[in-house]
Design a binder for these strands. Structure first.
Lengths: 155, 155
DNA sequence: TTATGTGCAAAGACTTTGCTCCTCA
DNA sequence: TGAGGAGCAAAGTCTTTGCACATAA
């Protein structure tokens, strides 16, 4: 259902408009478009990828606007940085609780959604350190694609 | 028991020597010293911190050696990168299973050790994505130190 | 109208690389 | 002795910043 997806995206953008007004931030076409790119992608894009995508529609957009906008979207909790132990920051707009599978070969990031009843326990000692905001489970390993490539190489 | 700590450090360095030989890598004083700094710190030092500490003992060491050595130590699984969503890579030599509390205010990283019987469950869907190497739980929040500072400011 | 945001260019932070000489094994 | 490593300097890569103009509210 492409229409369904578009509808959801529109809803997200409406929420962005609301949030911007709430925080006294302007709703600019750049902000909308940059958020759209992150929100509409399952690939956890980095800043450059977002920039390239936005440039398709707004050829005059600049990299620094993308960085600045990603930072402000992050600050208003509309997007999040995905841990990846790599120099390039990657972003995610999906607020439904989920975790990540990070391939140590190709650095691809896959979403791990929890089953409806599933819940990851906090380490018992976690609360000793302060006030907990969120928990992020990163599973590291070799993804199926890379495993397959290894097998292909051996033959 | 300072002696105990030193003994453990010596053991770790012996293990490094063994691993180097095993992998056909040379045991150089720089390598030892750089590893020592990471292994002997609970602070998850970044490259620069390691560099400064090593320079105390080896004034001629260069930053790029530190970077190169940290990378090779990482490759031989002697040290690990700690996720921190920040530009500076931070390193950890502690191989006992533990997780991290990351303060979103001051970016300090605290080790969360599990209780003897404790075990964090993998997300049920994690295995679908490939071969799992390890799991890393990052608890994000505001650390006690920063909470205290907030309270102090209010008064 | 005016505070916020954008684009441009330049600089910044962190890290990597090419080359030569050195040194561990 | 010879392959791997260190030091130096220079260049990457990713990201941020200062400033002047533009624009949403």
């Amino acid at each position: 259902m492409e229409t369904n997806r578009e509808k959801m995206l529109e809803e997200k953008i409406d929420f962005l408009r609301t949030m911007c007004k709430l925080k006294g931030m302007r709703v600019t076409p750049q902000r909308i478009e940059i958020y759209k790119q992150v929100a509409n992608s399952c690939e956890h894009p980095d800043a450059e990828t977002v920039y390239e995508a936005v440039k398709e529609k707004m050829p005059n957009v600049s990299v620094d606007t993308v960085y600045r906008t990603l930072a402000s979207l992050e600050e208003m909790d509309m997007i999040f940085r995905v841990d990846n132990q790599l120099p390039k920051a990657r972003f995610d707009a999906d607020k439904t609780p989920h975790h990540h599978f990070l391939c140590v070969k190709c650095n691809e990031v896959y979403d791990i959604f929890l089953e409806p009843d599933e819940k990851i326990d906090l380490p018992k000692n976690a609360e000793r350190f302060g006030e907990i905001k969120d928990i992020n489970v990163q599973v590291r390993g070799i993804c199926n694609k890379c495993l397959q490539e290894q097998i292909n190489k051996q033959n």
